[in-house]
Design a protein around this nucleic acid. Structure first.
Lengths: 155, 155
DNA sequence: ATAATGCCTATAGTTACTATAGAGTCAAGG
DNA sequence: CCTTGACTCTATAGTAACTATAGGCATTAT
């Protein structure tokens, strides 16, 4: 048989196992999602099984679009197995609601933009471009700025 | 009649007219979306009609989720009325495609999360929580990290 | 006269990373 | 033994589109 596999792995191996970048692991550590790991005498971080699973959990949450702060909460809850899981439910419900709002907003955006795009189906001079005229606001009825500035992050 | 209204307005009035915050206007100026305006002797910015429309155009674009850089392009195109509007079409088409991708991704996220949520419909101990177990990855078949780290911004 | 606005600049914070610079550690090859 | 390359470390800055804060004039209202 080959040499017995040591349970301690370095950051690069952990990264590979879970499929994240090395820097991302250090970032999660700094943010308090991962505990400070033990170090080898030369200062290298060493991880073990539990860390792999914890990181995997974090990644799954991120893959579902959860914010770091929410994941922190989930991690804490996970460590209190005796508590009621209502809080988990609530957090997930809230996240689903957020996703639904984003979806609705994006859908509206897209519809409006597709409509606008229809105003300029063929080539022609910019001076006559229905899209730009639409964006000028002259043709925007339901999209007046008076609704107030709700600034969204860029796509 | 009342006193003749001066066409020059200050930044606060412009902000109010278009429905953005004052700081946002200064930000757009710094980013080159708005030209540097004239100043009163005391250093206050002064704007006029054209600025109101330009800012309105910018806000409409942002309301449609366009990135500042894209808006810059549109503004430049707008100032060349003799050119062909193909570029406008292309830009808008690309933006629509981006929106569609986002929509698809969010929709997938939501479905998965709703499914997960279904695993824990009632209260109970966290130790038995189907959601947390689902996020552990044991129950995640199609969501393995091996797909590679495609890091998305937070919601 | 003074207080409340409004305006100015400059800087830092937000989110979840990514990129860069500069340097130490380790295994293998020449 | 030395070098090359891969890996690790820290610290800092950059990303997008703002928001928030601090500190300081100018104007307006009381």
């Amino acid at each position: 048989m080959g040499k017995a596999r040591n349970d301690l792995i370095k950051i690069g191996e952990l990264a590979q196992l879970v499929g994240v970048q090395v820097v991302t692991i250090r970032y999660y550590e700094k943010e308090g999602l991962l505990d400070k790991p033990q170090r080898t005498p030369n200062g290298y971080r060493t991880y073990r099984r539990g860390d792999v699973e914890r990181l995997r959990f974090i990644r799954h949450c991120r893959d579902h679009g959860m914010a770091i702060e929410d994941i922190k909460t989930l991690l804490k809850l996970r460590e209190a197995p005796e508590r009621d899981c209502m809080e988990v439910n609530t957090l997930v419900d809230e996240h689903i609601k957020k996703l639904e709002e984003q979806l609705a907003s994006l859908q509206a955006l897209k519809s409006r933009l597709v409509e606008l795009r229809g105003k300029c189906p063929h080539s022609g001079a910019i001076a006559n471009c229905g899209i730009l005229r639409g964006l000028d606001g002259a043709h925007c009825r339901a999209w007046r700025a008076e609704e107030g500035p709700k600034n969204q992050p860029a796509p």
